[in-house]
């Protein structure tokens, strides 16, 4: 594990140095990405100029949901987002070269072409989150702080796992990056809004099948002191780390199985 982290840092560092040779390009891309993410949120605030509440949530509460989800996806996108290139690597054979190096292939796939500019997304999510914390009247306690911190970590792990699951699938299916995007970026869009606006089937799906609801929804209910409109067990409010651990284990297993079933290309 320590070896993998070190290897990730070494490979990612080389890419950061390479990207820094074009500083202007780096900064414009980073700022661009931050603004791009923020536009999403601006759209939400515009919506709130016509309505007061969405699914029972006011704009600051939605901002909290948005911030948690945006942060989690941002971290996952920065750390492992590049696994979406795996389909291409399998097809052009460069995945073979990774398999004969003494570093876990997942680390190489994730760190290769590491793009620090993706920090932009995290920065804007943190901004929204900061505003939400001020604008909502949360009655803070130690438990709530702990839940909030655990949510940031668990949410990131959940989105990382979704990326890895998608890439494990790509080893077997060639290119499925679009399908993977449906769950990562699509999942992010879905969780930006209070789940109370969706039918209960969707909520069950993102609770029991692909646990995206644990990225923000359940812990936010607890932090905001809002009653669960779907009457799920109260324990779910604190279950994000469990959901993240389970999903990460499943993703790791699928990835290993994928590598063992890897067929390589013809030549």
């Amino acid at each position: 594990m320590a070896d993998s982290i070190r290897a990730f840092a070494v490979i990612a560092g080389a890419w950061v140095r390479a990207s820094m040779t074009y500083r202007a390009s780096f900064w414009s891309l980073a700022v661009g990405q931050a603004l791009f993410t923020l536009v999403d949120f601006v759209a939400i605030t515009i919506m709130f100029s016509h309505i007061d509440r969405l699914g029972g949530f006011d704009v600051a509460q939605v901002a909290l949901l948005y911030g948690f989800s945006g942060f989690a996806l941002g971290v996952a996108d920065l750390l492992v987002g590049n696994v979406e290139l795996l389909g291409r690597r399998v097809r052009d054979g460069s995945f073979d070269a990774m398999l004969v190096r003494p570093v876990a292939p997942l680390v190489q796939v994730a760190a290769d072409q590491f793009a620090l500019r993706r920090l932009g997304r995290i920065v804007s999510a943190v901004g929204v989150l900061g505003w939400a914390l001020v604008a909502t009247n949360i009655d803070w306690s130690i438990t709530k702080v702990a839940v909030a911190v655990a949510t940031l970590v668990s949410g990131s792990v959940i989105f990382c796992s979704v990326f890895v699951l998608g890439s494990a699938f790509q080893i077997l299916a060639g290119d499925a990056s679009e399908m993977m995007n449906a769950f990562t970026y699509g999942g992010n869009t879905l969780t930006q809004y209070p789940l109370s606006i969706y039918p209960s089937e969707v909520v069950k799906g993102v609770t029991f099948i692909l646990p995206l609801a644990f990225v923000n929804w359940y812990p936010a209910l607890y932090i905001l002191g809002v009653e669960d409109p779907f009457d799920m067990p109260v324990a779910f409010h604190f279950a994000s780390p469990v959901a993240a651990t389970l999903l990460a284990a499943v993703a790791a297993g699928c990835w290993r199985a994928g590598v063992r079933r890897y067929r390589s290309t013809g030549s």
Binding site: A7, A14, R17, A97, R101, P102
Partner: peptide
């Protein structure tokens, strides 16, 4: 391992950086 039809080097990095990176990956 050298695959003649594909490279184990990083396409966008200078040759020297590729060597440095590999040396660190292989300790």
């Amino acid at each position: 391992v050298v695959f003649g039809q594909r490279s184990g080097l990083w396409w966008d990095l200078p040759l020297r950086d590729s060597f440095d990176l590999l040396a660190r990956i292989y300790d």
